[in-house]
Protein backbone atom coordinates (compact mmCIF):
# COMPACT_ATOMS: atom_id res chain seq x y z
CA UNK A 1 0.00 0.00 0.00
CA UNK A 2 1.13 3.59 -0.54
CA UNK A 3 3.44 5.31 1.92
CA UNK A 4 1.75 7.69 4.29
CA UNK A 5 2.99 10.31 6.73
CA UNK A 6 0.81 11.51 9.58
CA UNK A 7 1.53 15.07 10.71
CA UNK A 8 -0.07 17.13 13.45
CA UNK A 9 -0.61 20.84 13.98
CA UNK A 10 1.67 22.36 16.59
CA UNK A 11 0.51 25.83 17.58
CA UNK A 12 3.09 28.43 18.54
CA UNK A 13 3.73 29.00 22.25
CA UNK A 14 0.69 30.62 23.82
CA UNK A 15 -1.70 30.03 20.92
CA UNK A 16 -4.44 27.44 20.73
CA UNK A 17 -5.82 25.15 18.08
CA UNK A 18 -9.12 26.00 16.39
CA UNK A 19 -11.30 25.12 13.42
CA UNK A 20 -9.95 28.28 11.79
CA UNK A 21 -6.66 26.43 11.19
CA UNK A 22 -8.59 23.58 9.61
CA UNK A 23 -10.38 25.95 7.22
CA UNK A 24 -7.11 27.61 6.28
CA UNK A 25 -5.48 24.21 5.65
CA UNK A 26 -8.42 23.20 3.45
CA UNK A 27 -8.14 26.41 1.44
CA UNK A 28 -4.41 25.91 1.18
CA UNK A 29 -4.93 22.41 -0.26
CA UNK A 30 -7.23 23.89 -2.89
CA UNK A 31 -4.79 26.72 -3.63
CA UNK A 32 -2.15 24.17 -4.68
CA UNK A 33 -4.67 22.49 -7.03
CA UNK A 34 -6.00 19.91 -4.58
CA UNK A 35 -9.27 18.37 -5.73
CA UNK A 36 -11.69 17.71 -2.90
CA UNK A 37 -12.70 14.01 -2.80
CA UNK A 38 -15.07 13.98 0.13
CA UNK A 39 -14.94 13.35 3.85
CA UNK A 40 -12.90 10.87 5.85
CA UNK A 41 -13.15 9.63 9.39
CA UNK A 42 -11.12 7.50 11.80
CA UNK A 43 -11.81 6.57 15.40
CA UNK A 44 -9.30 6.06 18.18
CA UNK A 45 -9.91 4.60 21.63
CA UNK A 46 -7.75 4.71 24.74
CA UNK A 47 -8.09 1.49 26.69
CA UNK A 48 -7.22 1.48 30.38
CA UNK A 49 -6.93 -1.53 32.71
CA UNK A 50 -9.84 -2.30 35.02
CA UNK A 51 -8.42 -3.34 38.38
CA UNK A 52 -10.56 -5.28 40.82
CA UNK A 53 -9.05 -3.72 43.91
CA UNK A 54 -7.78 -0.21 43.22
CA UNK A 55 -6.13 0.09 46.62
CA UNK A 56 -4.49 -3.30 46.45
CA UNK A 57 -0.75 -3.41 46.74
CA UNK A 58 -0.96 -5.99 44.00
CA UNK A 59 -1.19 -3.28 41.38
CA UNK A 60 0.55 -4.95 38.48
CA UNK A 61 3.11 -2.32 37.59
CA UNK A 62 3.99 -4.31 34.55
CA UNK A 63 0.61 -3.55 32.95
CA UNK A 64 0.49 -0.70 30.45
CA UNK A 65 -1.30 2.38 31.83
CA UNK A 66 -3.18 2.56 28.59
CA UNK A 67 -3.06 1.37 25.01
CA UNK A 68 -4.66 2.49 21.79
CA UNK A 69 -7.15 0.95 19.46
CA UNK A 70 -7.79 2.57 16.10
CA UNK A 71 -10.05 1.95 13.12
CA UNK A 72 -8.88 3.37 9.80
CA UNK A 73 -11.13 4.47 6.92
CA UNK A 74 -9.10 2.53 4.32
CA UNK A 75 -9.49 -0.75 6.25
CA UNK A 76 -12.91 -0.70 7.90
CA UNK A 77 -12.97 -4.48 8.55
CA UNK A 78 -9.78 -4.26 10.61
CA UNK A 79 -8.78 -2.83 13.95
CA UNK A 80 -5.33 -1.93 15.22
CA UNK A 81 -3.96 -2.05 18.74
CA UNK A 82 -0.83 -0.16 19.71
CA UNK A 83 0.89 -0.62 23.08
CA UNK A 84 3.35 2.23 22.87
CA UNK A 85 5.36 1.40 25.99
CA UNK A 86 6.01 -2.13 24.70
CA UNK A 87 6.44 -1.17 21.05
CA UNK A 88 3.70 -3.56 19.95
CA UNK A 89 1.26 -3.09 17.09
CA UNK A 90 -1.33 -5.76 16.33
CA UNK A 91 -3.73 -6.05 13.42
CA UNK A 92 -7.06 -7.76 14.11
CA UNK A 93 -10.54 -8.13 12.66
CA UNK A 94 -12.94 -5.41 13.83
CA UNK A 95 -14.67 -8.07 15.99
CA UNK A 96 -11.72 -7.91 18.43
CA UNK A 97 -13.45 -4.87 19.95
CA UNK A 98 -16.34 -7.08 21.07
CA UNK A 99 -13.86 -9.59 22.51
CA UNK A 100 -12.20 -6.79 24.52
CA UNK A 101 -15.61 -5.77 25.86
CA UNK A 102 -16.42 -9.36 26.84
CA UNK A 103 -13.10 -9.81 28.65
CA UNK A 104 -13.85 -6.81 30.92
CA UNK A 105 -10.15 -6.45 31.68
CA UNK A 106 -9.63 -3.18 29.79
CA UNK A 107 -12.16 -0.49 29.05
CA UNK A 108 -12.22 2.17 26.40
CA UNK A 109 -12.13 5.34 28.55
CA UNK A 110 -11.66 8.01 25.90
CA UNK A 111 -12.74 7.93 22.27
CA UNK A 112 -11.60 10.44 19.69
CA UNK A 113 -12.82 11.03 16.16
CA UNK A 114 -10.63 12.27 13.36
CA UNK A 115 -12.72 13.79 10.61
CA UNK A 116 -12.27 16.17 7.75
CA UNK A 117 -11.82 16.36 3.99
CA UNK A 118 -9.55 14.52 1.62
CA UNK A 119 -7.92 15.95 -1.48
CA UNK A 120 -6.25 14.52 -4.53
CA UNK A 121 -3.15 16.29 -5.85
CA UNK A 122 -1.54 14.40 -8.69
CA UNK A 123 0.11 11.35 -7.14
CA UNK A 124 -0.66 12.51 -3.61
CA UNK A 125 -3.67 12.09 -1.39
CA UNK A 126 -4.02 14.60 1.38
CA UNK A 127 -6.31 14.34 4.37
CA UNK A 128 -6.79 17.14 6.83
CA UNK A 129 -9.01 16.62 9.84
CA UNK A 130 -9.82 17.77 13.32
CA UNK A 131 -9.47 15.66 16.44
CA UNK A 132 -12.57 15.77 18.62
CA UNK A 133 -13.70 13.65 21.56
CA UNK A 134 -16.76 11.53 20.78
CA UNK A 135 -19.93 13.28 22.04
CA UNK A 136 -18.20 16.64 21.96
CA UNK A 137 -17.49 19.38 19.49
CA UNK A 138 -14.45 20.80 21.23
CA UNK A 139 -11.47 20.49 18.94
CA UNK A 140 -8.37 18.89 20.51
CA UNK A 141 -6.03 19.05 17.57
CA UNK A 142 -5.55 18.82 13.82
CA UNK A 143 -3.93 16.00 11.88
CA UNK A 144 -2.85 15.73 8.29
CA UNK A 145 -2.17 12.55 6.30
CA UNK A 146 0.05 12.78 3.23
CA UNK A 147 -0.02 9.71 1.03
CA UNK A 148 2.18 9.17 -2.01
CA UNK A 149 0.23 6.69 -4.10
CA UNK A 150 2.91 5.20 -6.43
CA UNK A 151 5.39 3.99 -3.78
CA UNK A 152 5.12 1.58 -0.87
CA UNK A 153 8.72 1.72 0.36
CA UNK A 154 9.14 4.18 3.23
CA UNK A 155 12.77 4.78 2.34
CA UNK A 156 12.23 5.27 -1.40
CA UNK A 157 9.37 7.70 -0.80
CA UNK A 158 11.21 9.76 1.80
CA UNK A 159 12.65 12.37 -0.56
CA UNK A 160 9.44 13.02 -2.45
CA UNK A 161 7.50 13.18 0.82
CA UNK A 162 9.95 15.71 2.25
CA UNK A 163 9.63 17.82 -0.89
CA UNK A 164 5.85 17.73 -0.73
CA UNK A 165 5.83 18.77 2.93
CA UNK A 166 8.19 21.63 2.07
CA UNK A 167 5.84 22.86 -0.68
CA UNK A 168 2.96 22.54 1.75
CA UNK A 169 4.75 24.57 4.42
CA UNK A 170 5.55 27.24 1.88
CA UNK A 171 1.96 27.46 0.67
CA UNK A 172 0.66 27.58 4.23
CA UNK A 173 3.19 30.20 5.35
CA UNK A 174 1.43 32.80 3.16
CA UNK A 175 -1.53 32.59 5.51
CA UNK A 176 0.35 33.79 8.61
CA UNK A 177 -0.95 31.10 10.92
CA UNK A 178 0.36 30.76 14.44
CA UNK A 179 1.91 27.32 14.26
CA UNK A 180 2.96 24.57 11.86
CA UNK A 181 2.37 20.96 10.83
CA UNK A 182 4.98 18.69 12.38
CA UNK A 183 6.16 15.30 11.17
CA UNK A 184 7.37 12.96 13.91
CA UNK A 185 10.43 10.90 12.98
CA UNK A 186 9.74 7.29 13.85
CA UNK A 187 11.69 4.07 14.09
CA UNK A 188 9.18 1.55 12.74
CA UNK A 189 11.72 -1.24 13.18
CA UNK A 190 11.18 -0.98 16.95
CA UNK A 191 7.60 -2.06 16.33
CA UNK A 192 8.71 -4.97 14.18
CA UNK A 193 7.61 -3.22 10.98
CA UNK A 194 9.61 -3.34 7.77
CA UNK A 195 10.19 -0.71 5.08
CA UNK A 196 7.17 -1.85 3.07
CA UNK A 197 4.24 0.29 4.18
CA UNK A 198 1.24 -1.39 5.88
CA UNK A 199 -1.83 -0.11 7.78
CA UNK A 200 0.06 -1.03 10.95
CA UNK A 201 2.50 1.77 10.12
CA UNK A 202 -0.46 4.17 10.09
CA UNK A 203 -1.65 2.87 13.47
CA UNK A 204 1.79 3.44 15.00
CA UNK A 205 2.00 6.96 13.53
CA UNK A 206 -1.35 7.89 15.05
CA UNK A 207 -0.27 6.54 18.44
CA UNK A 208 2.91 8.59 18.41
CA UNK A 209 1.26 11.71 16.97
CA UNK A 210 -1.42 11.58 19.67
CA UNK A 211 1.22 11.33 22.40
CA UNK A 212 2.96 14.42 21.00
CA UNK A 213 -0.31 16.26 20.55
CA UNK A 214 -1.45 15.61 24.11
CA UNK A 215 1.93 16.74 25.42
CA UNK A 216 2.20 19.94 23.39
CA UNK A 217 -1.20 21.21 22.22
CA UNK A 218 -3.44 23.27 24.48
CA UNK A 219 -7.07 22.92 23.44
CA UNK A 220 -9.05 26.08 22.89
CA UNK A 221 -11.77 26.75 25.44
CA UNK A 222 -14.32 26.50 22.65
CA UNK A 223 -13.40 24.85 19.37
Amino acid sequence: MPVKWVLYWQPNQGSTVSTQILNEAAQCAESISGVKEGRWKATLNYYKPLLRDQSSTHHPDSLPRDFLGISLPDHPAKYYFIIRSQRIVVEADASIQIIMEKLQSYKSKVSLHFDGFQYHLGDFRLRVGRVVPVHSESIRGIVMEVEYLPISSMEKARKVMEEFVEIWHEALSKRSLSGKFVNVELNFGEFGLADNYTPQHTGVQYAIVMAHMIATVQPAVRG
Binding site: L50, R52, D53, S56, P60
Partner: peptide, 9 residues
Protein backbone atom coordinates in the same frame (compact mmCIF):
# COMPACT_ATOMS: atom_id res chain seq x y z
CA UNK B 1 -3.58 -12.09 36.25
CA UNK B 2 -5.28 -11.88 39.69
CA UNK B 3 -6.15 -8.19 40.01
CA UNK B 4 -6.90 -7.47 36.36
CA UNK B 5 -10.47 -7.08 35.17
CA UNK B 6 -13.93 -6.82 36.70
CA UNK B 7 -13.89 -10.63 36.83
CA UNK B 8 -11.13 -13.03 35.87
CA UNK B 9 -11.23 -13.68 32.17
Amino acid sequence: VPNLGVVSS
